[in-house]
Simulated assay, not measured.
Amino acid sequence: MLLGRALIGDTSCFGEVVDDRFHLLVGDVFGEYRRSGQSLPLVDVVLGAPLAGVRLIAVMGGFLEPGTSRPSGAEPMWVPKACNFVSGDGAEIRVPSALRGPVNVEAELAVVVGRPLSGASPAEAAGAIFGWSVFNDVTAAEYVVPGLWATAKSIDGFASWGPWIRRDLTEERVLQGLAITGTVNGVKVQSGNTRHYRFAPSEMLSHVSHRVSLFPGDVVTLGTPLPPPVAAVGDQIVCEVEEVGVLNNHLVAEG
């Protein structure tokens, strides 16, 4: 099941994407909901970010090198991604004139939390997964070298995700391996596979929940294959996760 969000008239509406149609939903997507009976052709709908006003957490160093194993005692690394103006598929990402260096565009799989988690075990965290989405974790490269990761990842507008949340994908399938690819102006610049995650998504959610309580709608991006590609104003970015979706963005200058 693919859950999307679109602006219909002046109203933000959730819908199921089935057979190239957007079936409007009524109710609470984190509780009980149903189809309203109204649907629109998907080509007539502009999908935004699947959820509005979400809290973002970005995993660092999420991938192992192929053929290597996780060192004993390794700890997950993550930072809050506190950017405003999160966008969706087809959106422009504005690069502020205050930035002096390039930006990295990072194709990632993101996991969406479906119910509250605090001090959760990995098994409890796995049961709280609401769904999965494609994420473009844009990062200001000039802040990476001095280690200012939260700043690097929290520039206004430096997050885009969508085009929907896939709800019927299991963590087991994710760990079996889904291809992650990124292209800039039609050239493949990034490639990886979720079978090489350093930590399972449920392990990441568990680790975070022992330090920061998680709530329905929170989004945890699970890391990007290295090295992250560099992009510039004018570039067209495509992030794709196998069996989840394709996310398109265009980098533009601020103003």
Results as ranks from 00 to 15, higher is better:
1 M>C: 03
1 M>H: 08
2 L>W: 00
4 G>Y: 03
5 R>N: 08
5 R>P: 04
7 L>A: 09
9 G>I: 05
18 V>W: 00
18 V>K: 14
22 F>P: 10
25 L>F: 04
30 F>V: 14
30 F>R: 12
30 F>Y: 15
33 Y>H: 14
37 G>K: 13
39 S>F: 05
42 L>K: 11
42 L>A: 15
44 D>V: 01
45 V>W: 03
48 G>W: 13
52 A>E: 15
52 A>D: 15
53 G>L: 06
54 V>M: 15
61 G>A: 10
62 G>P: 14
62 G>A: 14
63 F>N: 14
66 P>I: 09
72 S>Q: 15
72 S>M: 14
73 G>R: 08
73 G>Y: 01
73 G>A: 10
74 A>Q: 15
78 W>Y: 15
78 W>H: 14
80 P>I: 04
83 C>Q: 13
83 C>G: 06
85 F>Y: 12
85 F>L: 13
85 F>H: 14
86 V>W: 10
92 E>D: 14
93 I>P: 05
96 P>Y: 03
96 P>E: 09
96 P>S: 09
97 S>W: 06
99 L>P: 07
100 R>Y: 00
101 G>C: 01
105 V>K: 03
110 A>K: 05
116 P>M: 07
118 S>E: 11
122 P>I: 02
128 A>W: 00
129 I>F: 05
131 G>C: 07
134 V>H: 04
136 N>Y: 02
140 A>S: 13
145 V>L: 11
146 P>D: 02
150 A>E: 12
151 T>E: 11
156 D>C: 04
159 A>N: 04
161 W>Y: 15
165 I>V: 08
166 R>W: 01
167 R>G: 09
167 R>D: 09
168 D>F: 00
169 L>F: 06
170 T>H: 08
171 E>K: 10
171 E>F: 01
171 E>N: 09
173 R>V: 08
173 R>M: 10
175 L>I: 05
180 I>P: 09
181 T>K: 06
184 V>W: 00
185 N>E: 00
185 N>D: 05
188 K>N: 10
189 V>W: 03
190 Q>L: 12
190 Q>M: 09
191 S>W: 08
192 G>V: 06
195 R>E: 07
198 R>W: 01
198 R>M: 07
202 S>W: 00
202 S>N: 04
213 S>Y: 02
215 F>V: 08
224 T>W: 08
226 L>W: 06
226 L>C: 07
227 P>K: 02
227 P>Q: 00
228 P>G: 09
238 V>M: 04
238 V>T: 06
238 V>W: 01
241 V>R: 05
243 E>V: 01
245 G>R: 03
250 H>Q: 12
253 A>S: 12
255 G>K: 07
255 G>P: 03
